[in-house]
Design a protein around this nucleic acid. Structure first.
Lengths: 206, 206
DNA sequence: AACTGTGAAGAGTTTCACAGCG
DNA sequence: CGCTGTGAAACTCTTCACAGTT
């Protein structure tokens, strides 16, 4: 029945993170707003999309809120994740504990360079990209992370989509072309730096 | 006189990237829209904030457009960048060529672990965080990249701000608290994964 | 004829302000 | 009294549709 606005979905993970330090307590929208660095009316509106879980005059029960947000974000089950492109960034992500922050399990690491096959990163062996399709079906990858160079990213995305993935996190510096129904999120260092640059330039000028 | 809307600023780097393959050509808003995967009216409106650089009946001169966008983004000068936190991710970024994609120069790598001091990454030695302030003033760091664990991020941010930085790219999984006038951009793997999760869950349900 | 530049309509988002509840 | 939940106002962003230019 729902229809949580995209802007709210973007903020839910932030609230979740802020709430972690307040387990077993009660928190007001005002306090949570401070932590998440947003306006308190926004917090209340965002949380109201999940249902009415606050108590007037008191605030929100943190444990309950954490549960509701997690449920809404689909974090009550584990999603199998694969990473393609075991260069610097891919390797760093594979070793990074951040996935384990509940809800995600890295079940596959792939590269196209035969010299890397069999090497272990974070306890898991790098496999050949040629075996991707089989692995994807067997391990039911839900989210594909692309950390290849720009030139290889589209091909990898096509492969992921062909194997049935509908959710892609793209770290490669290029815009992927994908069919409807596939959700691509871009995480792009140079884009972010360029935006920093804009506001920096703005500051010194004018 | 300006006032480019934030939504437009976010897209300018994308256009810039897409235009790279079309140097010395002319491009229509329709074509650029396809490449950047947005609506063509949006492209025209975005570009109109830079001024009227298109030619009706023809399109935009790519070289000129690249120049105008670069200028608007403040990419005509190089910004000195420093990275604090030489773990997996920080090291990967230090090695990553992405900075060089014009406009950014990594002029400092810092960590608080003495065992790392002096180690070279991407041709540059890791320095002690204790020397940050001196280095920041000498090398005039404009952008600080934080790749420390969550627990250290706020302290590092405070230090950057004390040293005069006003632009921070935060990869640590936490919300930083900073004074007005400091621009923080978050790049957060688990947030992105959680958003993926939301849309995945949505898909299978309903 | 082809394409830009832009007013105006429409959609989405934020913020205010306060009624309503505990 | 304090804090949530929410209509309504304000603002921002997107998209349409077409006049204007080459």
């Amino acid at each position: 029945m729902k229809g949580i606005p995209p802007a709210t979905v973007q903020r839910l993970p932030i609230y979740l993170r802020c709430l972690n330090d307040y387990r077993a307590q009660t928190i007001s929208s005002e306090r949570l707003a401070q932590l998440a660095r947003v306006n308190s009316a926004k917090v209340r509106k965002d949380l109201s999309f999940l249902g009415s879980y606050g108590t007037r005059g008191v605030g929100y029960d943190v444990d309950h809120l954490v549960y509701q947000i997690s449920r809404e974000l689909g974090l009550t089950k584990d999603w199998p994740v694969c990473i393609v492109g075991m260069g610097n960034l891919g390797s760093a992500l594979a070793r990074y504990g951040g996935f384990g922050e509940r809800g995600f399990e890295v079940l596959g690491l792939f590269d196209s360079d035969p010299r890397k096959f069999g090497k272990k990163i974070g306890g898991r062996e790098i496999e050949s990209l040629a075996d991707f399709d089989t692995a994807a079906r067997e391990r039911e990858f839900a989210i594909g992370v692309i950390t290849t160079p720009a030139g290889a990213a589209q091909e990898v995305a096509d492969r992921m989509i062909a194997a049935g993935l509908t959710s892609i996190l793209n770290f490669a510096p290029m815009v992927l072309s994908v069919p409807d129904g596939v959700d691509v999120r871009r995480v792009d260092l140079s884009t972010e730096l360029q935006i920093c640059s804009f506001y920096l330039a703005r500051q010194t000028a004018s």
